[in-house]
Design a binder for these strands. Structure first.
Lengths: 232, 232
DNA sequence: TGACTCCTAGAGTAATTACTCTAAAAATCA
DNA sequence: TGATTTTTAGAGTAATTACTCTAGGAGTCA
């Protein structure tokens, strides 16, 4: 028996992800829950604090996923990082999708977001450093820095990109999952040139595991991928 | 003497870039121009067609910038591509920043946007192919595909990223320019591992030319960069 | 039972905003 | 000049939407 307060967050998140924060009114949220608007406002005094509470969740989840590795780094641990990070960002994808508006509407959230990115890049640097120390990637300091920034961009934009190109994926869970995982594939492409040793040996295995389609852009652009689809 | 119709587009673009499409009402646009709302609606029957007209401009400009190279590819031409592409995207940065909402609000625009991305990736493939044929980069087909998708992500997200992290840059033209150019630096980081021959020899020169700061994340996160700034 | 607190309902409001309508000024043309 | 078309103004409207307010149910503890 989850509380009304929690259910409001869950439902808001689901609706925000599906329709975008701008298109979800507080009345919609209440209706989806079968409660009154007044009830909703009893628990959250305005829409902004719902968004803010969701950001709390998102932030906590992502920073946890970014905690420095306990054990020695290896290519399996690395993949685990990629996967859990992208999964969290996917779960709260409305946030990056509507980032510009959300930050504009709430300066305090904007401040917190910047601190959050700071924390993410700090922890990211630790992780990439560990990857280097473990001989998984071979990079100099400047390359590491560039790689990290680009990784953050890909990660934080992936859901938006997919949403813009494949709005039809909403509701199709299998396709949704496939598109999400292809984001990991793009992250693999990003670091592939720097892979060394054992990690490089497993490159093709990793690629195959996350590649969403034979032809990347077909998946992203929603073009037919197989001969049958083309025929049908 | 530019026509009112053109001036409406110019002003809308400026306001959209500065404040975000959602936060700019038709009345604001009219007021900024010193004309009446009625006048504005005489020229554009609703707000959507203004956005749509701006997309026309953006699309035309970007696809022109993506035309296949006439002459043989060399590293200078390549840099020219990067710079003119990112400049165009920067000029219309409101578009990618509010993409999710804009596409949601106008299914026809969404359709056109997808065709646009299709055209961009088609032309992008030609250009990256030319880079490979000219011996500037060394990549196999899969790497080329991954590189191109990642390049598009970085390019199309750069303005949003910057806006989220450095809202203070609005109004400071020098800083604005510097942040934009650092996007090119990130693109250089992206393809750096694949550079060969003469292009690689000019790598450091290129990096220095576009690098916005000694420490990348300082620029992005707005941290003090120099000893004086730290002291002050 | 009664008192007290938490939770809920739902009608209603104030503010915003995209957009309309009428009418008149300005430009164009016969 | 007069007729016609293009362009402009600006008051006004309908719809949306975040949010309020009052009143009452439901659980808890004396």
């Amino acid at each position: 028996m989850t509380s009304t307060k929690q259910k409001i967050l869950d439902t808001s998140l689901a609706l925000f992800n599906k329709q975008g924060e701008r298109n979800v009114t507080t009345n919609h949220i209440a209706e989806a829950l079968g409660i009154s608007p007044g009830n909703l406002y009893y628990h959250y005094r305005n829409k902004g604090v719902i968004v803010s509470a969701l950001f709390d969740r998102y932030q906590a989840q992502l920073l946890t996923a970014l905690e420095a590795p306990q054990e020695a780094m290896n290519w399996r641990v690395k993949v685990y990082y990629f996967e859990s990070l992208l999964a969290s960002m996917w779960q709260f994808r409305f946030f990056h999708r509507d980032l510009s508006h959300l930050l504009h509407a709430d300066p305090e959230l904007a401040r917190r977001y910047r601190a959050f990115v700071q924390a993410v890049t700090d922890r990211g640097a630790v992780i990439f450093g560990a990857l280097r120390d473990s001989g998984i990637i071979e990079v100099d300091d400047e390359q590491l820095q560039g790689l990290m920034v680009n990784t953050w961009i890909i990660m934080s934009s992936w859901a938006s990109l997919v949403h813009g190109l494949r709005p039809d994926a909403a509701g199709d869970e299998a396709l949704d999952e496939r598109l999400m995982r292809h984001g990991i594939y793009q992250m693999i492409c990003l670091e592939e040139p720097f892979l060394t040793g054992e990690a490089r040996e497993h490159l093709e295995e990793m690629r195959a595991r996350y590649r969403g389609a034979d032809v990347t852009t077909s998946l992203l652009l929603g073009l037919p991928e197989t001969a049958e689809e083309k025929a049908g």
